Computed example of a mutant assay.
Amino acid sequence: MARPLHADIDLAALRHNYRLARELAPGSRALAVLKADAYGHGAVACARALEPLAPAFAVACLEEAQTLRAAGIQRPIVLLEGIFSADELEQVEALGLWVAVHSDWQLDALLAHHPRRPIPAWLKVDTGMHRLGFPPAQAEAAWQRLRAAPERVTDLHLMTHFATADALDPGYFQHQMAQVEALAGRLGAPLCLANSPATLAWPRAHGAWNRPGVMLYGSNPLEGENDAARDLRPVMTLRSEIIAVREIDAGEPVGYGGRWRAPRRSRIGVIAVGYGDGYDRHAVDGTPVLVDGQRCGLAGKVSMDMATVDLTDLPGAGIGSRVVLWGRDDSGAVLSVDEVARYCDTISYTLMTGILPRVPRYYQSS
Rank of each mutant, 00 (worst) to 15 (best):
R75T: 00
P76M: 13
P76G: 09
V78G: 03
V78T: 09
L79C: 10
L80W: 09
L80K: 10
E81T: 07
F84Q: 15
S85G: 12
S85D: 14
A86W: 01
D87N: 09
V92P: 05
V92K: 08
V92C: 08
E93I: 04
A94S: 14
G96T: 13
L97E: 03
L97Q: 10
L97Y: 11
L97S: 05
W98A: 11
V99W: 01
D104I: 07
D104F: 02
D108V: 13
A109G: 10
L110E: 11
L110N: 08
L110I: 04
L110G: 02
L111W: 07
L111Y: 06
H113C: 06
H113S: 09
H113K: 06
H113I: 01
P115Y: 07
R116F: 00
R117H: 14
R117K: 14
R117W: 03
R117E: 12
P118W: 11
P118R: 11
A121E: 06
A121R: 08
W122M: 14
L123P: 05
L123E: 06
L123K: 11
L123T: 13
K124W: 00
K124E: 10
T127K: 01
T127S: 13
T127Q: 04
G128N: 10
M129Y: 08
G133W: 03
F134P: 00
F134K: 01
P135H: 12
P135N: 05
P135S: 13
P135Y: 01
P136R: 05
Q138I: 01
Q138F: 05
A139T: 04
A139K: 01
E140I: 06
E140T: 06
E140N: 06
A141P: 02
A141D: 06
A141I: 02
A142P: 02
A142I: 05
W143K: 08
W143N: 09
Q144N: 14
R145N: 06
R145C: 10
L146K: 02
R147A: 15
R147F: 00
A148Q: 13
A148D: 15
E151G: 01
E151D: 15
R152D: 06
V153R: 02
T154N: 07
L158E: 02
M159C: 12
T160W: 04
A163I: 04
T164W: 11
T164N: 12
T164R: 15
A165C: 12
A165V: 01
D166P: 04
A167C: 14
A167I: 07
D169Y: 09
P170H: 05
G171L: 12
Y172C: 00
F173N: 04
Q174V: 12
Q174F: 03
Q176D: 07
M177S: 06
M177N: 00
Q179V: 14
V180Y: 01
E181H: 14
E181C: 02
A184D: 07
G185I: 06
R186N: 10
R186W: 01
P190H: 11
P190F: 07
C192P: 00
L193C: 05
L193Y: 01
N195Q: 04
P197R: 07
T199V: 15
A201C: 08
A201N: 09
P203C: 08
H206Q: 11
G207N: 08
G207I: 12
A208T: 12
W209M: 11
W209Y: 09
R211V: 02
G213C: 12
V214L: 15
V214W: 04
V214Q: 08
V214I: 15
M215R: 02
M215F: 04
